[in-house]
Design a protein around this nucleic acid. Structure first.
Length: 285
DNA sequence: CCTGAAACCTGTCTGC
DNA sequence: TGCAGACAGGTTTCAG
């Protein structure tokens, strides 16, 4: 599900309420619950369950697609992968009875004031880390798209250091943190770049255009609280702004050519064959 | 270094 | 109606 805009939306809601949510800042952990221990990565369940008790949630931030919770002196990191979500609710229902767990609830922090934050993940791809330093988990991530010193020029230079198809490169979190399948397709469309273009054949002008497009689609995604698709993520509005994603066969908004879908690196890839021309000697299309 | 395939999982939708 | 098969917002690992 979640790419940078969806994760950012969740982080903001957990910080300040919003999206119908409740802030968890300042709440103290009474106890943690592991409903599916397999979600815990690189740490013993006992350490996690023991060390979280009595700790205050001091901050909620985002790095790439990771959520980072400052809890006491340590950090809880959560990656939602394909189907994960976080919700905050009271531990008791309206009748005063203990609220039941939902199907696919995997982990929860129960707070002293009667609230709880629950990690739900149908596909079991999502993971949770409990670490002394967030860098242990996010240290190898590429730059943040909105980072100040990540300039269009820096982006161009970084593209030149690889010789890879642009689409899988943009999806590679070590290259750039935060983009997923939706926003990558949308950004490449906006920049008029074919998804198979080798990164080192992208011109400075194209790089500048792509850099702007990436920031554009991510900003618009955040402004619209992310994209709601299928049954996984709700509350967002960006799906109504898709130009190519999941629009196979529909007319391109710019030139009217039917949008095509191909597979690139095993990921469904949507593009306009007319607006996003393949570079010269690429045999594809 | 680069690409593609497979694996990790469950839910939903399509087509026969 | 039922059921097999395809497909899904992500990441890691391995073979060639």
């Amino acid at each position: 599900m979640p790419e940078l805009p969806e994760v950012e939306t969740i982080a903001r809601a957990l910080r300040s309420g919003g999206r119908g949510g409740v802030s968890i800042l300042g709440r103290t952990v009474q106890r943690a619950e592991l409903l599916w221990p397999g979600c815990l990565q690189d740490v013993e369940a006992g350490a996690f369950l023991g060390q979280t008790v009595g700790c205050e949630v001091k901050a909620v931030t985002r790095r790439g697609k990771y959520l980072c919770f400052s809890v006491g002196e340590r950090f809880l990191l959560v990656h939602l992968r394909m189907s994960g979500d976080l919700r905050v609710e009271t531990q008791l229902d309206e009748q005063g009875a203990a609220r039941l767990w939902l199907p696919h609830d995997r982990m929860a922090l129960l707070f002293e004031d009667g609230y709880r934050m629950v990690f739900n993940d149908a596909r079991k791809f999502g993971r949770v880390w409990w670490v002394n330093d967030p860098e242990e988990v996010t240290g190898d991530l590429g730059p943040e798209p909105f980072q100040e010193h990540f300039s269009a020029d820096a982006f161009y230079k970084r593209l030149q250091t690889f010789r890879r198809q642009i689409k899988p490169l943009l999806l590679d979190q070590h290259f750039l943190a935060g983009l997923g399948n939706i926003y990558t397709d949308e950004a490449l469309f906006q920049a008029h770049i074919h998804p198979l273009t080798p990164s080192d054949r992208i011109t400075p002008a194209q790089a500048a255009s792509l850099w702007t497009a990436i920031r554009n689609v991510l900003s618009e995604g955040i402004r619209r609280n992310g994209a709601s698709i299928d049954w996984v993520y709700r509350g967002g509005d960006f799906q109504n702004n898709f130009e190519v994603y999941q629009r196979t066969g529909e007319s391109c908004s710019v030139c009217g050519t039917p949008i095509e879908k191909i597979f690139v690196g095993q990921r469904g890839t949507h593009f306009c064959p007319s607006c996003q021309r393949a570079p010269g000697n690429l045999t594809d299309l």
